[in-house]
Design a protein around this nucleic acid. Structure first.
Lengths: 318, 318
DNA sequence: TTGAAAGCGCTAACAA
DNA sequence: TTGTTAGCGCTTTCAA
């Protein structure tokens, strides 16, 4: 392994000078710097990140804890994030959570040991507040997509807005008996859109359970005469199954919008509410850079707007 | 930050003794060891991985370079791998390749700097042999899924076998004019199965191009009277599109097997050839552990067998 | 069984 | 502008 000592010897300077040649804000004569850089290149020198890290307590590494919810969406997140981090010489360490067994607390502890310069996670609740509080003093925490800890920076999507947009689009095309299948947070966007349009919401058209079967959804559509459907996250899959059966059995075909633009949604050309992953990745990187450069302690909170992608499952004129 | 010095002070021993308490094969009296471990626990001591790494040139980190081919399959790979590595206190560093721009060479260099104890990658060809050769002396390289470098360890899937199994299944159910859409390597399994069954292969039923359009496939099925289809990797998506149109326009419904059991394939209940990811992850970990423990230099080569998952797209009696 | 001390490769304060 | 030196936290050899 080539070290700065090898370069120093070859150039006839001290190791300190070599070190300076690689540091951007160090005083060094252009001539020696050039010579050092050239020899480093020749020798194939690569700095030892562990030695550097040990010295200045920085790992140049960002950790991300992925909730193992079989959401393929996260591969896109990872890709965008890694590509952006790379530009700033940060590396990405990943960690997965299992439903049973290895959990968030374990993942947080593992990341604590890794001494990452920043740690991105998507907590469901505040049950690990003890560990989280400890970590707050050791690294830069960032909540992604979910933000139960109010005193920790976050980058989240405005899902209420996203659902509202989807609902509005259906309403503007003449649909008023829209079935909503998903969580009780985002449903606000659904109610907002309806009330703005002067439509009285029918609670029978709202399924707030995350575990509805295709049968229940199908039955609901028929009995309540739903004329369109919005399906959130994994429930979108179930909605799709319900709609397939409905089409096969009753030859009924109603508009459908999926929340989260995942692979199968694209494949089947289904309209979807998508998230600007490039923007999200940019924000995350911005946070990390600012925290590690300026050492600002200000809370960083970003809310990004999802957007609607119109495809053939809502085949209207506009 | 709590260091071994803090523990040493509190216990009235030297830092060397504290270090010994944490090393499994060190001579230390059970009594002092117990006392040290207890104090460490109380103080909330966490070893500094960088200091440890600097000393013994081990990072306890494994790198993986993901070819950014939009294959969601890789999220599963990552998950299985990380979960297995975790058991042995290894961490996973990921890196993505872009089609244009940041490429395999860049990724390899980045990983070189990260000094990972092992590096997993999926090279398409041997064009980066220079960097690869340099890395061979610095880390433990492992080729995953593809193995163009013959002198480097690898874990690959037997895709010829996989395609053969799929073909055999179709044949055993009475189909003989099977359309194959995919690469020219795996097609061997297709020809094998046919010849074993005494069926003379029709070259018109083989599309070795990776960029066939749904129209071409649809037209092929009709003109060549194909009675079943096998679609490989991303071409499986195109096949599915062709089949949807065929069903809509001609009300023709023929059996279909997709190669690679990805999300949309599961969603649509399409029969598929899948890979034992848990087994693959186990092999990878076995390789890493053996290389970092025993320091064996033997080439590690594993070939795993894919398996067929029967679903409704091949709705036979067995 | 334990301690003292050297050193892994690097950075930065201080001195020249 | 450059060199000397201490030290980041840990492991390990050697001596006690």
């Amino acid at each position: 392994m080539i070290t700065i000592k090898d370069i120093a010897d070859k150039c006839g300077v001290s190791i300190a000078t070599v070190s300076r040649a690689f540091s951007s804000n160090s005083i060094i004569s252009p001539h020696t710097k050039e010579k050092i850089l050239k020899t480093a290149e020749e020798l194939g020198y690569r700095p030892n990140l562990m030695a550097r890290g040990l010295k200045n307590s920085k790992t140049q590494t960002v950790g991300i804890i992925i909730p193992s919810i079989d959401n393929y969406f996260y591969l896109d997140v990872l890709k965008h994030l890694e590509l952006n981090l790379h530009k700033f010489s940060y590396r990405l360490l990943v960690n997965f959570i299992q439903h049973n067994g290895y959990n968030e607390a374990d993942a947080l502890c593992a990341m604590e040991d890794s001494q990452t310069d920043a740690l991105i996670f998507s907590p469901r609740n505040t049950q690990n507040s003890e560990i989280v509080n400890r970590l707050k003093n050791k690294t830069n925490l960032l909540q992604l997509f979910t933000a139960p800890y109010k005193d920790i920076s976050s980058v989240v999507t405005n899902d209420v807005y996203g659902v509202k947009k989807a609902t509005e689009y259906l309403i503007s095309n003449g649909y008023s008996r829209i079935l909503y299948v998903g969580g009780d947070e985002r449903v606000k966007g659904y109610f907002n859109a309806l009330s703005n349009a002067g439509i009285i919401a029918d609670n029978d058209l709202v399924l707030l359970n995350w575990e509805n079967s295709p049968e229940i959804i199908k039955e609901k559509i028929i009995s309540k005469k739903a004329d369109a459907v919005i399906g959130i996250a994994r429930q979108a899959e179930t909605v799709w199954h319900a709609l397939s059966r409905l089409y096969k059995d009753n030859h009924l075909n109603i508009p459908f919008i999926a929340y989260d633009d995942v692979n199968w949604v694209k494949m089947l050309d289904i309209s979807a509410v998508a998230h600007p992953l490039d923007k999200i990745a940019e924000y995350i990187v911005e946070y990390i850079i600012s925290r590690n450069k300026n050492n600002s302690e200000k809370l960083y909170k970003k809310i990004v707007k999802p957007f609607l992608i119109k495809r053939s499952s809502t085949n209207f004129s506009n």
